[in-house]
């Protein structure tokens, strides 16, 4: 593999990992508040189909993305209402979201199955001046589209928010010990609602990005392809840390691209099905290795993850 092929593969890996990174960041923020939302796949699919329909109707990229974000938020809000206000089982509610989101997007997407996106609505490459001319790195990182750059900014902001700010501290405390947060005068359920919806927005945007940048025409099967579930696993193995989630997403992207590259090169020794499995396996293995080092530092799941909070329960 020569230098330019490697740069091309890595650049493609970053682009392929971006929707996963966005979804994982969203789920990470939600889980930090103690709410487990397994409905990522559903939110991404609904976000994607909404984006496609709005893009087809208006031709506007921005409007389409907003619509995708809103769709994700709406589903997340349903999950919040069920699991926070009604204190339903979060696993059941999350899985219901997957089924609902998948079903609804199948219904909405059926008339447009196979229809290409209007060319004007596609997200196109925006190279970063100066940085794009860097040897190698320029081609890998800085000849991407705006959403890729925005993902980096978002990761940095999330890390800053979680560990350096007052609302971030409140968010983490609600996920760790809602009774403590409540006793200290924080609005536990409000904080959980807000961050569950933020998580939904990011999952919706992840779905929007898939449609606007990655998949040429609406095809439900080719859209999310299970990465909503990979995003959930990613959050766990990234030990609920934003930069690690981003890294994990790119590793997944790389494995995905390497797989295409190998198939294109006509490698037949390994069955294609095994190559298709590889990205999932590799991502999990790398992140297990990372999280094993965390056991020593007592990092781990927010202690109240998946548990509803009611003040007067005794």
């Amino acid at each position: 593999m020569n230098d330019s092929v490697l740069a091309f593969t890595l650049a493609a890996a970053v682009a392929a990992g971006t929707p996963l990174a966005l979804a994982a960041l969203g789920e990470l923020i939600t889980e930090r508040s103690g709410i487990l939302n397994l409905g990522v796949e559903g939110m991404m699919l609904l976000g994607a189909v909404t984006t496609f329909l709005v893009a087809s109707a208006t031709g506007s990229t921005a409007l389409a993305m907003l619509a995708g974000a809103a769709a994700g938020a709406a589903l997340a809000l349903a999950h919040a209402a069920l699991s926070i206000s009604l204190r339903a089982n979060q696993i059941v509610s999350g899985l219901a979201l997957v089924i609902f989101g998948t079903g609804l997007s199948t219904y909405l997407g059926r008339p447009v199955e196979g229809v290409p996106l209007p060319p004007g609505a596609r997200i196109t490459r925006t190279s970063v001046p100066l940085l794009q001319d860097l040897p190698f790195l320029g081609r890998v990182l800085f000849q991407q589209d705006l959403v890729v750059y925005a993902t980096w900014v978002l990761t940095a902001l999330t890390a800053l928010y979680l560990f350096r700010t007052r609302p971030g501290l409140a968010l983490r405390s609600v996920g760790e010990s809602p009774a403590t947060a409540d006793a200290m005068g924080l609005r536990v359920n409000t904080i959980r609602y807000v961050h569950t919806v933020i998580g939904g927005v990011l999952c919706g945007v992840a779905g929007a990005y898939l449609i606007l940048a990655r998949v040429p025409a609406w095809s439900q099967a080719a859209t999310t392809n299970g990465i909503g579930f990979i995003a959930i696993a990613l959050v766990v193995f990234a030990s609920w840390r934003p930069w690690r989630a981003l890294l994990g997403a790119y590793i997944f992207g790389l494995a995905l691209r390497a797989n295409f590259a190998l198939q294109a090169a006509g490698v037949t020794a390994i069955p294609a099905e095994f190559l298709a499995m590889a990205p999932y396996l590799l991502t999990i293995l790398v992140l297990i290795a990372l999280s094993a080092s965390d056991l020593r530092h007592r990092a781990g799941a927010p202690e109240a993850l998946g548990l509803a909070y009611a003040r007067e329960e005794r």
């Binding site: 700010t165 007052r166 501290l169 983490r172 009774a179 409540d182 200290m184 005068g185």
Partner: peptide, 28 residues
């Protein structure tokens, strides 16, 4: 002060104390 402490075990003492203090600036 509750019999069963209301403390976040993974936080530092300072983080526990600052929790919910709205006089803190946004970036603490």
């Amino acid at each position: 002060v509750h019999q069963h402490f209301r403390l976040v075990r993974r936080f530092t003492v300072a983080e526990n104390v600052a929790l919910g203090d709205r006089s803190q600036p946004l970036v603490m």
